[in-house]
């Protein structure tokens, strides 16, 4: 008798969770009915080299007072990207550094696996990286996430999705596939597309849009 109650409870909880996940996926792809039109806290995930240049291009055409405050995250091993973001923010604030601190924050995140690291040690580093990502996401709880490819965006976006399911924070995740991807998506892009984690998915080449019909073709950013 007890066991059948347990089984019923388990089945009920699983179906409740599943229906909540389906509900989140259904509403994730749909435009917000944003009536307040107030500024949204924005998390920007940066990656090395070309990724950062593309992301700063996107930022340069967004209205800065609507996407505010801004949180920049880059891998702990990547020194260049945050530097570039800081330079960009300083230019916006016209070199008023006190002003920059109010509207922009720069953070580093541990990577789950460095190039060439063994799979055994990467179990631990993945755990640490995930906990670190969770900690950052609890602190930031962004309303908007902008990312374009570096692997560091995966744990952050998955946590954001879980926050949506749990009702902690509803965030809109925008993913712009890198211009370097012409025929195939990157692994990060593929994961976020297939799992319906990205609210809007942008590609820069028409070939990709034909293979991934839910993506929006937006032309070259560079």
């Amino acid at each position: 008798m007890d066991s059948s109650v347990t089984i019923a409870t388990v089945i009920l909880s699983i179906s409740l969770i599943l229906s909540r996940i389906l509900y989140v996926i259904y509403w994730s792809g749909r435009p917000l009915r944003n009536k307040s039109l107030g500024p949204v806290s924005t998390l920007i995930v940066l990656g090395s080299g070309g990724h950062t240049a593309e992301m700063l291009n996107v930022l340069s055409v967004l209205q800065k007072d609507l996407f505010s405050p801004r949180f920049y995250i880059a891998a702990a091993t990547d020194n260049m990207s945050l530097q570039k973001a800081r330079t960009y923010e300083n230019q916006l604030a016209d070199k008023n550094e006190a002003e920059v601190d109010k509207i922009a924050q720069f953070m580093q995140i541990y990577r789950s696996r460095e190039v060439g690291q063994s799979y055994f040690t990467s179990v631990w580093t993945t755990l640490i990286a995930t906990l670190h990502a969770l900690w950052l996401m609890i602190k930031i709880r962004p309303q908007v996430i902008l990312c374009n490819g570096p692997g560091t965006c995966i744990p952050l976006c998955l946590i954001a999705f879980i926050f949506k399911v749990l009702g902690i924070r509803w965030s809109s995740i925008f993913y712009v596939e890198s211009i370097a991807r012409v025929k195939r998506l990157s692994l990060s892009g593929l994961i976020l597309y297939k799992l319906y984690v990205a609210d809007q998915f942008f590609v820069q080449w028409p070939q990709l849009q034909r293979i991934y019909p839910r993506a929006h073709y937006v032309g070259c950013l560079m």
Partner: peptide
């Protein structure tokens, strides 16, 4: 011809209900 990010920005803004 250099591309630009305006189409992306327009879609993001539309999605969020911004001008």
């Amino acid at each position: 011809t250099p591309g630009d990010a305006k189409p992306v920005a327009a879609l993001i803004n539309r999605f969020l209900g911004f001008p």
